[in-house]
Each structure stands twice: as structure tokens, then as C-alpha cells.
Design a protein around this nucleic acid. Structure first.
Lengths: 240, 240
DNA sequence: CATTTACAAATGTCTATACCACTATAAAAC
DNA sequence: GTTTTATAGTGGTATAGACATTTGTAAATG
């Protein structure tokens, strides 16, 4: 079960083991899992290592602790997936749809004041501007405009943004994407959105403005998306 | 600085101290904080205790670690507040507005199939149904319908929901609120929403459907909110 | 029988130490 | 001068033990 000589840390092995026992049902919801001391004894590992594993599972909502009693398995939530910061492509694949894009424009422009402000740049700093129609199963889903600081996200090409921008940022540029903040509102479709999304004039659209950050807090991406309200619903979870 | 005899844990004291140093600027963004060994030496505490404190701050996005180098202060995000699961009242106060409510109805009804399903109940199980108009600075902001399992959230009164429902659940019922999942979409206002929100027919509204969970994963609340799109924007952050 | 007390078991906090992997730099070798 | 090698410092993992706090139960007490 636990391989002490494996390069993968013991706490992570135990974590995965408990998680799979929850998922395959051998540990049921509301059930008390073995105590920390029992895990430690059973696998001949330290109790602190067991705590490390269990703490991670508590943080992710799989378990919850009760002092003096023990650690219980939490019920599976209805929306267990589709959380966290994802790209349009990742999002659509999760929903079981086939994502594609139609590129409207791709250029470097000087940042306007509001865009510069949100990206923490000086006005007129060069930024990539990428305008796209996003499709799901070949039907227009959203019109999207992305701004990226050209001095930070270097060497962008059409190929890269057609593949995976996040993958490029994380693997080629070795930058750590940490989090994003979003503003979500409802509006009526503007003229160009009516055209691109093939909807009636005045139809409601879901407007999402996202600012994404690297690990050190630097904003690296600003995305304005206008989604067809009849085809898209934003889903997320949040902690108390 | 650190009081070993305090009933508040050492790791928590250190956590608060570092956090306040970040907030008052004595630790600046991108700066390397003292090493774990240095904190341990300086306060004569164990390095594991220091790690406990730092890990919590990393989890909350105040710091980020880099193996072999050290631990850095992260830049403050623009939207640092207003994250996490909050009530309408908490939300409005954060936004600097004065919240109030107008109760439309408050009764116990048998749960319809869709409501029962989302709350993990059998059909016709009794649930509280609370219909309210939510106001901010005395202007209608949203119409809201809340469903609560009557067998779980016992003893509800009008007084309680006019005060703080979450406070009642957490303190009087001693239940631990853990998280919520939300579905957010844009629609056109229905007739009754037009009336209650004092908006034009066909105006866009932001529809939020929230299911809230206790620590053990039990759903305890279902809320359907229709917000005036011209006055409300939903803001949140999410981790990669 | 009811109440109090004692105890066992669980998680929570904390210590002191050890070794690993990674990074940057200084010293040594070429 | 350039390359290699050693070294020191950092966070990452792991150990073995100690005591505190909370909870439930069993035993002692009234």
C-alpha cells in the first residue's frame, strides 16, 4: 500500500489511497476513518505524516475533523468538478462539448488606461489583444477579448493561442499561475455581440471580466467574455 | 512578540504577526521574508511551528514559496476582500451599502421534486420557504427565495431571518457551514421580478442559484436570487 | 437510580532532529 | 578566462515523542 522507497512522498501516497477509498466506496460518507495513530501504526509511519495527508484531504473537502471524536468522510457534493481556474477549452471539455475558436484579430497595441490599470501597467505599455469567437459544438458561445502584457508573456503566436495558452505560460515560460478574480454581470447584447453570437437584439448576455494572477501576485491576463445566456451558465464553488 | 504561554497557538500568533507586517508595509511585495530557521531561532520556537504558520499564509495567497530560494511576499490583489461564502447582508456591508429586506412570505411547505433533489431530500419533505425583496440603501436589489430543510434548521422565526440566519445556524445550532456551489446565469426579468425590482420589462437580471453545504457535505440551504443587472455585479476569486 | 469521577482515545499543538533536493555563490581546477 | 566542484542556505519530507483539550464511556460514589 505504502512504499517508503518511492520517490513520491509518503503523505501523498496515503492521501491518494484514502481519496480512492472514498471514491470507490470502501470508505462511506459520514463514516469515521481510522485514527491517525492507527494509520501510523498500520503503515509504520509517523503520525505527523498521517496528519499531513489528512490535512490536505480536509482542505479539499473530502474529510472533516472533530476534536475528541475523530475524522469523518464528507458527503460528495453534487458539483464536485469544474472548480478552479480553467480556460475556455478546459471548461467546455468538462461540460462534454467540443470547443473551437474563430480568431477575429491578434495584434500588439498600447494599453488604454482602464486596461493598463487592471493589469498593473503604465498606460500605453504594449499588450497583446486577442479577439475571438468561442464555439462549443460549432455553435457560437461567447465573444472574447484577451489582453496580455507583451513584456511578460513573450513570444506569443497564433499557433500557441490556438493550442493552449495556459500550457505555454506554465510549461514554456515556467510561470506559476495562481488565481483569478472575476466580475460577473448580466447585460443586453451590444450590436457586435448580436452579430457574432447570432442572437436577437436585446438578448441577455453573461459578461465575465477576469483578471488572472501569477503566484507572486502579478496580473498576467485580462479577459472580457460575453456569453450567450441561453447556452451558458457559470458554475463554481466557494468556501465559507 | 510571541507569547508561549498564551492560550492562542504559537503558529497562529506568528501567522497574524506576519500578516500584519505585510498589511502595514514592513514586509513589502516581492520581498524575501526571513527563513524558517531564522524565525525559529529568533522566537525560540520549532521550525515545524514556523512552517505551520507560513503554510497557512501561503494557502491564503499572502506568501509563496520557492524551493532552494526562500519565501516571498505576494503582491496585493485588487480584489482582496469579498471572497468566500457570504450572506446578502455581509455582501452589501462589504460593498459599503446598507442592507435591508422586505419579507414577502415565510412558511413551511412540502418540497417539490427539483427542490428536494437539490437539497438531497425526498419529495414532499417539509422545508421552509422564505421569499424576500432585498434592498441596498433602500432600493430594491434582488428578489430572493430561500429553502431550508425544516428537520435540519429547526426553530426558525421571522426574527432570526431578519437578524442573521448564518449566525443562528453556526452559533445556536452549532452546525459548521463549509461551502456552497453556485450557478450563475443571465436572463430577462420575469413579470414578478419586473414588479418587485422596479425595472423595465425585458431588462436583464443576474440569476444566482446557490446550494450551501455543512462540513459533512449535507446541503442545508437553497437560494434563488434574481439581481438587478444595473446595480449588481458578482465578484469572486478562484484558485488555479 | 442518578450523579460524579476517572480513564481511555481522539485530534490539536509543539519540540528537536535528520536528511533530501534545489539554488546561488565562491573556490578550485583546467 | 572558462568550467567544474565544493559549500552554504533554503524549503520539503519524515521521525518519535510529549503534553493539551475534547469527547464518550465505564467505574465509583452518593
Amino acid at each position: 500500500m505504502i512504499d517508503k522507497n518511492s520517490p513520491v512522498p509518503i503523505y501523498h501516497q496515503l492521501e491518494e489511497q484514502i481519496k480512492s477509498q472514498i471514491e470507490n466506496g470502501s470508505l462511506e460518507a459520514d463514516e469515521l476513518i481510522p485514527s491517525e495513530r492507527e494509520y501510523a501504526e498500520r503503515y509504520q509511519i509517523s503520525r505527523m505524516t498521517v496528519r499531513h495527508a489528512i490535512n490536505n484531504l480536509v482542505k479539499d473537502g473530502f474529510l472533516h475533523r472533530q476534536k475528541g471524536k475523530g475524522t469523518y468522510v464528507s458527503k460528495q457534493k453534487v458539483e464536485q468538478k469544474l472548480q478552479g481556474l480553467t480556460s475556455f477549452t478546459e471548461d467546455m471539455l468538462e461540460r462534454g462539448m467540443t470547443p473551437s475558436s474563430r480568431l477575429l484579430s491578434f495584434e500588439i497595441i498600447p494599453a488604454s488606461q482602464p486596461i493598463a490599470h487592471r493589469l498593473g501597467l503604465k498606460e500605453n505599455t504594449p499588450v497583446y489583444e486577442i479577439r475571438r469567437i468561442r464555439l462549443a459544438d460549432h455553435v457560437p458561445m461567447a465573444v472574447e477579448t484577451t489582453y496580455l502584457p507583451a513584456n511578460l508573456i513573450k513570444g506569443l503566436t497564433e499557433d500557441i493561442i490556438n493550442q493552449s495558452l495556459y500550457k505555454y505560460i506554465e510549461e514554456k515560460l515556467t510561470l506559476n499561475i495562481s488565481e483569478a478574480s472575476q466580475e460577473i454581470e448580466a447585460t443586453s447584447a451590444k450590436d457586435h455581440e448580436v452579430k457574432h453570437l447570432q442572437i436577437e437584439k436585446g438578448s441577455p448576455v453573461l459578461l465575465i471580466l477576469r483578471t488572472s494572477y501569477l503566484e507572486d501576485g502579478t496580473p498576467f491576463e485580462l479577459v472580457r467574455s460575453a456569453y450567450r445566456a441561453d447556452r451558458y451558465k457559470f458554475v463554481h464553488t466557494m468556501k465559507r
